[in-house]
Design a binder for these strands. Structure first.
Length: 423
RNA sequence: GGUGGGGUACCGAAGCGGCCAACCGGGGCAGACUGUAAAUCUGCUGGCUCAAGCCUACGUAGGUUCGAAUCCUACCCCCACCA
């Protein structure tokens, strides 16, 4: 399993005996997820894949939702009522995360089912005195102060560090202890920035008389250009929740991967085997314009997250939006394909007779921030109506331009689509 | 509290009486090439009935002037040094 992670680029570091433990018997291992949002995003995919590989290797994956640590994450003073509300939200978020994880992990497997855990279950009833006595005494403040993350904050007079944040590593270590007691968990995985917290947990379990535990950390992902991974072209977070990021946008996000990144992504985010990845890598070299690797990557990940139907919809929309002309489509098809393209209502009466000036309509529909900008875009050749480039700055839209008597499909550049609905 | 420096478009940064809607760089957008990549190159990047023209803009409010981002006055805010 460690070897598999290494080949896929998922391994940044592991504790000394982790590989041995994983190759001998069945291990229960966990990853913590932040429940401050109700959905995971593509940035969470690395740890998720870590759990997937764990389960595929016959081990038991545990997804820990940090409900308790999430509650104290923000130390600004809150009323009791507010905290209760937050707790409810937190539980909803945890449920949302579980649903998304179910696309990746098998919660029904006979021998090694995936499990969810919420640290609220043990942090909630935890007494401060007990905690300090049983857990706190195993932590050396001297060692905690040496941590890089803490040190940086101490040196920064401005920012400083609150006691709450300082204690965070104790709580995370305590999670490991509880999981080892409750679920026999002996492995924690996480981002490489979690290394210190993970080893702190391993130490705690040992000092409390528990079993030898292990840690595996994943590399932090950056794009070939050194940018943070996980933002769309519009710099929006790409979520796994179809309500937040449609399957079409999700698919497009992956399809737009650069050549320099795509092979790495195939290894990280799909379960394709070495031969398949090698073939696709070869395709990137010999026929990059066909973007086979990108297509495969996008298809695989989209199918896993959004199912076959989600992938179909994304493919259908992609073909029409980037393939040919939208002419000839029925209203129903347009509504379907352009489902998550910004749509603006347009009074039909304005298109009758001489029609309405395109630049004016563009400004109103939010396609351009002003009429001036709209005219500039047209002048520079960046505006397309129903798939055809517009050449006249003073061009108009008339009822002639309506597809199926109802829609105008407009585009700026290659990727920014808009629908005008003259119902 | 004193002295000095400074506040310019999304950001950085020139300009220091008319040639300034404001050099230049970054960012953003569009175009070309290509592959819905990357790199590169080109153009655009205040508004208006955009061709001329007009309007609004250079911390805020006044003033001088035919004419101000540029000079004067007051005020606000930043930064540095001194106390």
């Amino acid at each position: 399993m460690i070897e598999e992670l290494r080949w896929r680029g998922l391994l940044a570091d592991a504790t000394e005996h982790a590989a041995a433990a994983l190759s001998v018997g069945q291990v229960a291992g966990y990853v913590g997820f932040d429940p401050t949002a109700s959905s995971l995003h593509v940035g969470s995919l690395v740890p998720i894949m870590g759990l997937v590989h764990l389960q595929r290797a016959g081990h038991c994956p545990i997804a820990l939702v940090g409900g308790g640590t999430g509650l104290i994450g923000d130390p600004s003073g809150k009323t009791r009522e507010r905290a209760l509300l937050d707790r409810l939200t937190m539980e909803e978020n945890a449920e949302g995360i579980r649903r998304q994880l179910a696309s990746f992990l098998d919660f029904e497997a006979a021998s090694n089912p995936a499990r969810m855990a919420n640290n609220l279950d043990w942090l909630d009833g935890l007494g401060l005195v007990d905690f300090l006595r049983d857990v706190g005494k195993h932590f050396s403040v001297n060692a905690m102060l040496r941590k890089e993350s803490v040190k940086r904050r101490l040196e920064d007079e401005e920012a400083g560090i609150s006691f709450t944040e300082f204690s965070y590593q104790l709580l995370q270590a305590y999670d490991f202890l509880e999981l080892s007691r409750r679920h026999g968990c002996t492995l924690q995985m996480g981002g490489s920035d979690q290394w210190g917290n993970i080893t702190a947990g391993i130490d705690l379990v040992r000092r409390m008389g528990g079993p030898q535990c292990h840690g595996v950390v994943f590399p932090l992902l950056v794009t070939a250009r050194g940018l943070k991974f996980g933002k769309s072209e519009a710099a929006e977070t790409v979520w796994l929740d179809p309500e937040r990021t449609s399957p079409y946008r999700f698919y497009q996000f992956w399809l737009n991967s650069e050549d320099a990144d795509v092979v790495r992504y195939l290894k990280l985010f799909t379960l394709l085997d070495r031969d398949e990845v090698d073939d696709l890598a070869e395709a990137v070299r010999t026929a990059p314009h066909r973007r086979e690797a990108q297509r495969r990557l996008a298809a695989e990940v989209t199918r896993t997250v959004h199912g076959a139907d989600g992938l179909d919809a994304a493919l259908r929309a992609s073909r029409i939006l980037f393939g040919g002309s939208p002419r000839g489509l029925s209203s129903a098809e347009i509504e379907d394909v352009f489902a998550d393209v910004p749509s603006t209502a347009l009074a039909r009466s304005r298109l009758e007779g001489p029609g309405a000036e395109l630049a004016v309509v563009m400004a109103e529909a939010g396609m351009a921030s002003s009429r001036s900008e709209a005219r500039r875009l047209i002048r520079d050749g960046g505006v397309y109506v129903n798939g055809e480039r517009v050449s006249a700055t003073d061009g108009t839209l008339t009822t002639e331009d309506l597809l199926d008597g109802r829609f105008v499909v407009a585009r700026i550049g290659k990727k920014r689509h808009f629908v005008l609905d003259a119902r």
